[in-house]
Design a protein around this nucleic acid. Sequence first.
DNA 1: TGACGTTTCGTACTATGTACGATCAGGTGG
DNA 2: CCACCTGATCGTACATAGTACGAAACGTCA
Lengths: 218, 218
Amino acid sequence: MATAKTKRQPMTRQRVLSAALELADEIGATDLTIRRLADALESKPMTIYHHVPSKDEILDGIVDLVFAEIDLPDSELDWKPAVRARCVSARHVLTRHSWAVPLMESRRSPGPATLRHHDAVVACLRGGLSLTMTGHAYATLDAFVFGFAIQEAALPEPGDEMAEVAAEIVTDELAETFPALHEFAVERAMQPGYDFGDEFEYGLDLILDALAERSRRD
Amino acid sequence: MATAKTKRQPMTRQRVLSAALELADEIGATDLTIRRLADALESKPMTIYHHVPSKDEILDGIVDLVFAEIDLPDSELDWKPAVRARCVSARHVLTRHSWAVPLMESRRSPGPATLRHHDAVVACLRGGLSLTMTGHAYATLDAFVFGFAIQEAALPEPGDEMAEVAAEIVTDELAETFPALHEFAVERAMQPGYDFGDEFEYGLDLILDALAERSRRD
DNA sequence: TGACGTTTCGTACTATGTACGATCAGGTGG
DNA sequence: CCACCTGATCGTACATAGTACGAAACGTCA
């Protein structure tokens, strides 16, 4: 009889966190439970607790892993293209791990990757902007990037049956109740070429250009 | 013996929702449980379920109540001041109910107040902007407003002891690890006059001005 | 081999959402 | 005034969550 059973990897904090990240991507953060995580690791709940003190710390850990996936700004470039690239990267990462967006709010303790990331962005901004403008830029850009990720995460998946049914209901029923919404939905949002995701780069460039303009004027 | 016992109000969906909203303001949305809600209503868990089908619907309901608190844009005004005022109002509301921000993401079914609100904003924008610009403006502004609310909610409360301890640790320990962050924290964020909340109006006006400018040019 | 520190995990406690059915109150027809 | 009916209330119970406790299994060095 072949020893088909693959040898069990040693359990470590790292392995717990990557498994948790993978599981969160599959089933979402709200359905991530210790028991399911233990199953995914072919282990038992209380084994996990030997390597990680609490579920909260697991959540902190995977949020930090998500941050680690965001490209740092390229220090060779000027602040504007460098920050632009990191914002685009951040959006891709947050789209890929859309469960992470609301978590980033409730987590109070930033992990090392999070801190390193913020440090790199601030450094990049400081390369071309005053201290004051750096504050304006970072607050505005990050609000936009995370906020956009929220909006996008709330959107129904393409192919979601409920959404398609809803679309028809909207068309018929809300035409007179919410005319402006109805007009926008029919004439713009549901038009073939429209992709909400494209609004991201529009807004990003709008903000970046305006920041550069104001920086030039002071 | 005085009948000190105040007569019990009749339980209704409205009463359940307002009590839930109040309780969420006190203890946060994650700690809001049916049993605690029942206690607040001087009732029992299963009584609540006679007026509301599930906890999820309670959450949907209080999110809609929060939306209802946001001032609608004044249709007398030009789009820019009108939308500006509603963004400022939205931020105040979201600050007051900071537990609501992450919920607005996960909730899939917008309530009537939410729809009415969106309709009014779109109508206001359409008063001065093209259909395309309306999409750009709404996506960008709402991403910014909600994103800012997230950032603000993640900030430690003023007076939070942990934050003050952290501040000293940051100063000493991270000075060489994260120099840019350290510089920004010490030279700007921790300066007496600095209030992160002020970045909101800066970013808001930056975006509004840029939108107006681009609209003028097309 | 035996002793000991680490890792694993069985059991169990508490808290949660909520299903089911019993109870109760208050109005209605006799 | 009473029997009855309908809807509101709630007691009990179950499945699932996080995780504390202590026992068992394992690896290592003497």
